[in-house]
């Protein structure tokens, strides 16, 4: 017997008990209990009569450097990080939205250089524009942005680079982060600032 059938039989017998109580017992409180039993049993039976489907959690994915072959692979991983572990989507949106609490990141990969993006993620207070579209002298403004490379979010350098790759892809830009920049496991990670500057050029400054 499957679990559904077992539960159906339980539901049916609860309804049956309720009916028996209503038929044979006079005490009004017991009758009310019988009535409630019928109602609850019927509810369960109705819920059991639709096709049953449990929702299983998806497999947890890990950043595996061996699977990354092209910048597009990086962007795909970056996409996942952006919407899950990195928690970026808790505030930022891509495209306008009423629920956005922070700047809309649509086209950000075209507007900002990758070095600037890297710095915004790792040192959010360093260089803030009131309006990120603003050009000219930077303005002092306390950002609500957390440090992405520290706890509680704590993305690794590889992960941050992937997110940048994703942002560039979403802006319709050529991805300027290359696979060779990623730290291989075991190797000591390069200093973030230096690594960011030493990246291949082709920094798009569109518009």
């Amino acid at each position: 017997m499957s679990e559904v059938v077992k539960l159906q039989l339980i539901g049916l017998s609860v309804v049956g008990i309720g009916i028996l109580i209503l038929l044979f017992i006079r005490a009004s409180f017991v009758r009310v209990i019988g009535f409630v039993a019928i109602v609850l049993g019927l509810f369960t039976l109705v819920a059991l009569s639709v096709p049953q489907m449990a929702s299983l959690p998806p497999v947890e994915e890990k950043f595996d450097i061996a699977t990354v072959k092209t910048p597009t692979d990086m962007a795909t991983i970056g996409q996942k990080i952006f919407f899950s572990k990195g928690q970026c989507a808790l505030c930022h949106t891509i495209g306008p939205s009423e629920s956005a609490r922070c700047p809309d990141l649509k086209g950000i990969g075209a507007k900002l250089s990758r070095e600037f993006l890297f710095e915004s993620l790792t040192q959010p207070q360093a260089y803030i524009y009131l309006d990120y579209r603003h050009e000219g002298v930077a303005k002092e403004y306390p950002a609500r942005m957390p440090y992405i490379n520290k706890n509680p979010i704590g993305l690794s350098r590889n992960e941050i680079l992937s997110v940048i790759a994703f942002l560039q892809q979403m802006s319709g830009e050529p991805i300027s982060v290359t696979v060779t920049e990623l730290d291989a496991p075991g190797q000591a990670p390069a200093a973030p600032a230096k690594a960011a500057q030493s990246g291949p050029v082709a920094v798009a400054q569109a518009h």
Binding site: Q79, F82, S84, T93, I94, G95, M170, G172
Partner: peptide, 10 residues
């Protein structure tokens, strides 16, 4: 899946 909910067309 979560990673597709917030995209917009580039």
């Amino acid at each position: 899946p979560g990673e597709y909910t917030g995209l917009s067309s580039p």
